[in-house]
């Protein structure tokens, strides 16, 4: 009885995510503004398949790392971006643009931004992890503050780099900050992100019981047998690398990593052995659904940026969450 309910929840979540995938594959708005249902054939369809693969990998990585971080940081409002990787990636992109401008090269766009984004994200992650060492172990509270500080410094760096660009090259960073699901993704980045999502989900599920134990206070967690230091280090690095891989592939995508774990928790409960895989499925479904929705909303000339969709829906959901959990979890 206790075992069956989470499995039913996981199945429901998988079905919902499959519906989102089908919707993204089969329903698009054409240039003349009409919604068309159907499959355009293998050549054009490949764009949709690639977009779904990107959304599922990135969403799963964000969902799994959000679930793990909410447990490890003992905070329902934690998201993968507390690790400072987004701002770090933004700074990487800004400085890459500046370097290209100084060297007299064309402004980098699309997949060419993946490498500097990844480098910036990993650099910021390294700084945050170094800053949050206390008594030889990683401390959750210091980690949150370290993430805020590193993020602020990286954002300041981005602003400076952007200001130094010639006027015609500015604005690139703003576009990048919206996040996007590329229909022609860099296959290396996609493979890296998918591998990170699968690896992190597997690790979180395999160590699910230990993660549950880490929700207790430090002393209590150690006293029930959790080797807290090594586990935190491994998990924070895993979450940081997976998030960096999504940021390199898609740019920063707001709220999915925050909301997916809550959707999953509502259906499967809070035990991490099943919560982490469920949050990965929920993240994949949410991000695919957001990308599908973006295709359908007619705003005249173009389409809504993905980040706008996740931010509008995610922001409202976040407010609801804040009202509900502020009194709830930490008591």
């Amino acid at each position: 009885m206790m075992q069956r309910r989470p499995m039913i929840g996981l199945a429901l979540m998988a079905v919902a995510s499959c519906i989102a995938v089908a919707a993204r594959l089969l329903v698009v708005r054409t240039l003349d503004g009409s919604l068309v249902v159907g499959w355009p054939g293998p050549t054009l369809g490949q764009f949709r398949v690639d977009a779904v693969l990107v959304a599922c990998s990135a969403g799963a990585a964000l969902g799994a790392s959000g679930a793990i971080l909410q447990t490890l940081l003992r905070n329902p409002l934690a998201s993968p971006f507390v690790l400072g990787v987004t701002s770090g990636a933004g700074a990487g992109v800004a400085f890459a643009s500046l370097a290209a401008s100084i060297a007299g090269m064309a402004a980098p766009t699309g997949a060419a931004l993946g490498a500097p984004a990844l480098a910036g994200a990993l650099l910021a992650l390294g700084c945050v992890l170094l800053l949050s060492r206390r008594h030889g172990a990683l401390d959750p509270i210091t980690l949150i503050l370290g993430g805020v500080i590193v993020g602020a410094i990286a954002s300041a760096g981005s602003t400076v780099a952007e200001a130094l660009l010639p006027p015609e090259r500015r604005g690139l960073l703003t576009g990048w900050l919206f996040g996007r699901i590329p229909e022609v993704p860099d296959m290396g980045s996609l493979a890296a992100c998918a591998a990170a999502a699968l690896g992190l989900t597997g690790l979180g599920a395999a160590w699910g019981n230990r993660l549950d134990g880490a929700a207790l206070s430090d002393d209590e967690a150690r006293s029930i047998g959790i080797a807290l230091g090594p586990m935190r280090t491994a998990m924070f690095i895993g979450c940081g690398v997976a998030t960096a891989a999504t940021v390199a592939l898609c740019g920063p995508i707001a709220f999915v990593g925050l909301l997916a774990p809550h959707c999953a928790r509502a259906l499967v409960g809070a035990r991490n052995r099943i919560l982490v895989p469920a949050a990965a499925v929920a993240g994949a479904g949410l991000l695919t659904a957001a990308d599908a929705l973006r295709q359908w909303i007619d705003i005249g000339g173009g389409r809504l940026p993905l980040g706008a969709v996740t931010a509008v829906f995610g922001g409202v959901a976040f407010l609801v969450l804040l009202r509900r959990t502020a009194a709830g979890w930490m008591a």
């Binding site: 549950d212 929700a215 809070a270 035990r271 979890w329």
Partner: peptide, 15 residues
């Protein structure tokens, strides 16, 4: 071999 009950029990997840 040893169990500890801390002064203030904390549970950082909705268990």
């Amino acid at each position: 071999r040893m169990a500890l009950v801390a002064q203030r029990p904390e549970v950082g997840a909705p268990f």
